[in-house]
């Protein structure tokens, strides 16, 4: 079920290492453009809103709401045995919509606009993946 989803070590690049290093420490960080203040997702050291490369990281609130979601009944590959699982776009309090999983929840109770908070999910493979669960 959804509390033991695949959590492989994420492939990182020079641009995304800070995100995953923070996650490993239990911190949820986001990149923000210092030129136009846009909070950027997915993480990159470039602002697709204004074209600046002056980007820095800040600690995010970890709060959000469900923008859309699907309960995947038939996952593919390594996800097959973990179905059903919830794949969702979470609209973060800071603005961006982030693709992730909603865990620690009965999939039948997930709804659009549901408040959620960040979870650092070690999963079954020992990685530290940023997922979300119901806000307490």
């Amino acid at each position: 079920m959804t509390d033991q989803l695949p959590s492989p070590t994420p492939a990182t690049t020079l641009e995304t290492e800070p995100f995953w290093e923070a996650a490993a420490d239990g911190r949820f960080v986001l990149p923000r453009c210092n030129a136009c203040d846009e909070v950027i997702w997915y993480p990159r050291l470039f602002c697709p809103s204004c074209g600046s490369n002056d980007v820095s990281w800040f600690e995010a609130s970890g709060n959000g709401t469900v923008y859309s979601f699907t309960v995947v009944e038939r996952g593919q590959g390594g996800w097959r045995e973990h179905s059903p699982y919830v794949l969702a776009y979470i609209e973060l309090a800071e603005g961006p919509r982030m693709l992730t999983n909603v865990i620690d929840v009965d999939p039948d109770t997930v709804a659009i606009d549901m408040p959620v908070t960040v979870r650092f999910d070690a999963g079954k493979d020992g990685g530290n993946i940023v997922r979300f669960g119901p806000a307490s």
């Binding site: 989803l5 994420p10 690049t13 997915y42 990159r44 995947v72 996800w79 794949l87 693709l99």
Partner: peptide, 13 residues
């Protein structure tokens, strides 16, 4: 793909 580890990682198919 630069977006790769922020999408497929979560079981997007």
């Amino acid at each position: 793909a630069p977006e790769g580890s922020f999408e497929n990682l979560f079981g997007l198919n």
